[in-house]
Design a protein around this nucleic acid. Sequence first.
DNA 1: TTGTATGCGTTATCAC
DNA 2: GTGATAACGCATACAA
Lengths: 363, 363
Amino acid sequence: MTPSARRHISASGSGSAYDAGPSGGGERVRIVDLAQELQLSVATVSRALNHVPTVDDDIAQQVRDLAERRGYVANRLARSLRMRTPPFVGFLVPDVENLAYSIAVDACAKYVGQLGYQLILVISGDDSASEYAALRSLAEAQVAGLIVAPSPDMSEESRALLAGRSVVQFNRDCGLSDYTVVCDDRPAFADATRHLLELGHTRFAYVGTTDVVSNGRDRLEGVRGELSRAGRRLSNASTRLLPPTETDGYAAAYELFTTGSRPTALVVGSSNLSMGVARAVRELGIAIPQEMSLVVYGDDRWGGLYEPGLTTITAPYREMARTVADIVTELLSGGRRPRRGPVRLPAELVIRGSIAPAPPRSR
Amino acid sequence: MTPSARRHISASGSGSAYDAGPSGGGERVRIVDLAQELQLSVATVSRALNHVPTVDDDIAQQVRDLAERRGYVANRLARSLRMRTPPFVGFLVPDVENLAYSIAVDACAKYVGQLGYQLILVISGDDSASEYAALRSLAEAQVAGLIVAPSPDMSEESRALLAGRSVVQFNRDCGLSDYTVVCDDRPAFADATRHLLELGHTRFAYVGTTDVVSNGRDRLEGVRGELSRAGRRLSNASTRLLPPTETDGYAAAYELFTTGSRPTALVVGSSNLSMGVARAVRELGIAIPQEMSLVVYGDDRWGGLYEPGLTTITAPYREMARTVADIVTELLSGGRRPRRGPVRLPAELVIRGSIAPAPPRSR
DNA sequence: TTGTATGCGTTATCAC
DNA sequence: GTGATAACGCATACAA
């Protein structure tokens, strides 16, 4: 019995359209099957399929025709094992709902696809144990390169897993690689603060994420720095650093608005937090911008919908995505290495009606 | 020379931290390397690594310790080739920026990860050629199952590629599989229309996507059906079916608002279109809801921010994601097959201030 | 131009 | 309890 004989066991009277192959056979067709049917060696078939020029034109055409008819699909796992060239690129993100990540993942999946790679997406949930598991599974898949948006507290084991591989850091710089694409938030937050100062505000508050991640730190420092240049400072009571969730933002804002003297200017340093803050604002019936000026962070697409419009600090999502995709592309295509060092793309401040002069009686 | 001897060529004085392995070696360590170092056979090492009980406890521990020390990472491609059990699940989406898809992708990546699979993400861009290429690459990766949000005009070749595989349709039903998770938009669109009718509106307009996809059709039919029950109909002039992009929405709305008699009630049937429409509304200074009532579709997170709030029809994204992840999970774990037939989750109508009685002088 | 034989890293089937 | 050895599907060095 030939090695492939046992393959041809499937019945002709196949079941539903979903569980039968193109020719009615459930089993995948391999090179050896084609070779047998054409009375050729696997080597010749392989060469024909790969357009190796030494193979006879007629034979080659025959092979490719048969391959098409029989619905032959190459096994990339086997090919990759033999060629020692992995077909995958990994992308690790905390979550893919975040617009920054979804746009970047989208761009990278398209780009690497054009290069013949495929993108394996893994989610860390910003949890260091899940992150390690995710990275390990990427390593097991022999990824040719990986894009990593590290969690704030990446473990040593995780870092070790990354050693010796082509990695590009995205959105967060944790010193894992020479290749990094981040958003430079600081100037935009400083600008926003300066605007608020010029509008006469004195009671500032900031709601942002924990400052161990570089982004969180930068945003907070943007506000703090500009305040201190004006001889002011952010009190601890009016600085809230939280996990980036809607509910945390809501809770923090609610408390901020209902205890002590209410701030007249509030800057929010995260997209999810912004949504929670907005909910608290609306629920408490706080008039924007008459009673309070508000600067939020994140997706700008809805900010312009209603009057007075929402002043928004927004990351250059598309540009970040394009940049990281370009770097990965260059890294993979093996040509000249991309320029080393972090690429810092400035965030943009979009001013709309949600900021206004401080109310007269403030302080 | 032993097979592995040529491996140990890397120098001790390694370069930067990013291009050296944990032990300073750039080469990956394989089972045979561990076996040689411990003077064992590859079989024993493999068994120890896989916790096969027949192996001596001491030996097993030794092996696992060494594996850890040397940073051994299994090659899943080789394992999968041998075991004939693919480690991947594929997910095909038109784009991953769309909230419905990003949430579903997120959920599925997490779920399949827990089952030891990894998710390969491919993007079709709603283009049938890219879609075919994407599906083919998934087939080449030998995916154990795949989740597909088909493009409106999926080609025959693409369908053939899907035959014989476990597939779950997501968000769009194109008759590719018994397993389908979609949003039932029709009732919500009908509800919205009924509200608008009760508010005395007579000049309706609808801006939606081309109706060849079931979703687009359902949404339009929800509006049309309710109008006809009230003895009214949507004129062709006030029905715009377009590709789902912000710019298309803007252009269509702009034209709708500036030519002929302006509608007093507008329903939008797509998230991207909604953003374009909103931009046109604001740019033309149309007062909502005084001059026009507006119902949009999509992400509801920002709709409640400002007064009067945005009446929104929103898909149950989380529930859809959870459902599709559950089905895939059941399909993969090979237990009892999930219940066949499409799962239709109803869209939700969130009523806010953007709808109001029709202005007095209308018709 | 084509066929034979070998190996990619792993697991499984046999002996021992 | 352990060790040779053969496969998994594919690509290539070498022989013919």
